[in-house]
């Protein structure tokens, strides 16, 4: 199916400049991922916006082009998605053949659709998200550990989360799911306790359980299930102990 689509892109030259919306006309196959659409706009002899002015190529990130690396997360019509697994045809339905592409909010824009996700990684480092001992192997836990390791660090969950904002005490889902995996594998009791404490302070106390994170997770990680498990391990256990005293 070939139709004409107006592609609206929120652009920004660098982190210090103001952002603006720029429109492009696209005529071509609609059954293509958004990344392919961006490539098609860029790979022309002259890149012209809808007013016919020649403009610079659109900056975006990508790596695997098949939904395995999380590099290409952007807002597509307002929702956080991976641009390589989202198809144009599914996005222009009722909006009158328009599509809006924006960089993730809550992160610093580097240029156009590229943002700096360093803060996510810093949180994991700050909250000691690793194991100190050799990994414990418990056959019943392997599937869960595997699912927690599927996280792409794409940031979709943080964008959708009503509780997360940059620089806050609440660090969002990546901390919760990593904690679950590492507590499940850790033999060092002291570090296990540290992970639980960090979870309480930096996740449990800030999460209002909207669970929008699970709706937008491109890997379909069972987040709700993992949070319940983490709460059982780190919050309720403590509470029970305290109530006994």
């Amino acid at each position: 199916m070939v139709e004409s689509v107006t592609v609206i892109i929120k652009r920004q030259k660098n982190k210090d400049e103001m952002s603006y919306l720029e429109k492009f006309e696209y005529d071509g196959d609609l059954n293509i991922p958004i990344i392919t659409l961006l490539e098609k706009i860029n790979n022309q002899d002259e890149i012209k916006n809808i007013e016919g002015n020649i403009v610079e190529p659109i900056k975006f990130s990508c790596s695997c082009l098949q939904g395995l690396c999380g590099d290409c997360g952007i807002l597509i019509n307002g929702l956080p998605k991976l641009a390589c697994t989202t198809f144009l045809i599914d996005e222009i339905g009722e909006s009158g053949n328009e599509i809006l592409l924006e960089p993730f909010p809550k992160f610093t824009v580097i240029a156009d659709l590229v943002v700096d996700k360093e803060e996510m990684y810093e949180s994991l480092k700050l909250l000691n998200q690793w194991i100190e001992s050799d990994a414990k192997v418990n056959l019943d836990n392997i599937q869960t550990e595997y699912e927690m390791s599927l996280c792409l660090m794409c940031g979709c969950c943080l964008v959708a989360c009503p509780n997360y904002s940059s620089g806050d005490l609440f660090k969002g889902v990546p901390v919760a799911i990593n904690s679950l995996k590492f507590i499940s594998q850790e033999k060092d009791k002291k570090h296990s306790k540290e992970l639980k404490n960090n979870y309480n302070h930096h996740f449990y106390s800030g999460c209002t359980k909207s669970l929008l994170c699970e709706d937008v997770c491109p890997m379909e990680i069972p987040i709700q299930r993992s949070i319940s498990k983490m709460n059982r391990l780190s919050v309720w256990k403590l509470w029970q102990l305290i109530s006994k005293i």
Partner: peptide, 8 residues
């Protein structure tokens, strides 16, 4: 590293 080819 999450973006590396190794994850594929």
């Amino acid at each position: 590293s999450e973006r590396s080819q190794s994850v594929m």
